[in-house]
Design a protein around this nucleic acid. Sequence first.
DNA 1: TATTCGTGGGT
DNA 2: TACCCAAGAAT
Length: 353
Amino acid sequence: MCETPKSGDLLDWYDQNARAMPWRTAPADRKAGHLPDPYRVWLSEVMLQQTTVAAVRGYFLRFIELWPTVVDLAKADDAAVMGEWAGLGYYARARNLLKCARAVANEHDGAFPTTHAELLKLPGIGPYTASAIASIAFDRPETVVDGNVERVMSRLFAVQTPLPAAKPVLTDLAAKLTPSERPGDYAQAVMDLGATICTPRNPACGICPWINACQARSSGIAASLPRKTPKKAKPTRFGIVYLGRREDGAWLLETRPSKGLLGGMLGWPGTEWTVEAQAETPPCPADWQDPGGEVRHTFTHFHLILEIRVAVLPRENPQDRGHFVMPSDFRPSDLPTVMRKAFDLASSAMAMD
DNA sequence: TATTCGTGGGT
DNA sequence: TACCCAAGAAT
């Protein structure tokens, strides 16, 4: 038989094992009444959506350096924010980040709302992020349910229903465990537990503060939970991108439409990406050459094989698409990863700089 | 409810 | 290599 899990046992563990992060206030400081900056909590939580702490850290520090407050961010140029987000993925987050910053600056006097319901109205803030901000930044007793919490609850209560169907049940179980004391620390504690001990594979049950309360552990099935419904196979799509350079060195680039894949990001003009090989569709007439090689990249729901073409473009070429960017203004780091791969391939194949 | 939407690291 | 996965939201 198992004990009833106690939130206090987890908080005691967290007091000793909380991981330091740039956006986080240590448990001792929180107990002294020092809550973290809501702007930093919001920014970090949006960056952390479906993204690892290791990947986020550098981006977070850079954003804070460039835009120390939400009002600063609200005044930033779209292209600057999208460029700084490049490489982090899920670019709708960056578009909504700006919308949200401007809403907070213009409609909330630069102060984030403090309740779950008000936070939920803002762009890019869903149920998880609203709970995270309300609990972590404002110590409200809201329940965070992310992938970590789903895994911890499914094991603690041996929930056999596969995800995502089990989500409502797991949310209910998590809510009933959430304490009214130290809700901010508790939220971070459950997620830390899932990230460091109650891991997807090889959970470290021997050092878990809830070992005596865990039903899956007592049944020996912890590592097999949570169950998940099978995923669909990824199809492969094909496309061509065109890396054109004017005689004065300027690159022909385009800002992609603000909706859909890589929306709002800088990229090379090219064909659509489809399951059938694409016919040549250059952005302007030129002597396009194939330098050889291909870019392979995998998105969430398809594999992509991309061919590249390169050309020197005449100075007075009436291009149909895109805009020219001088080398002094071109930062490959502004490109989403698949576009940066194309640039790297062209650079190595042509040995051009 | 199901799909769309990135990327890099781990196994 | 080929998966799996990560502090989800929008549609």
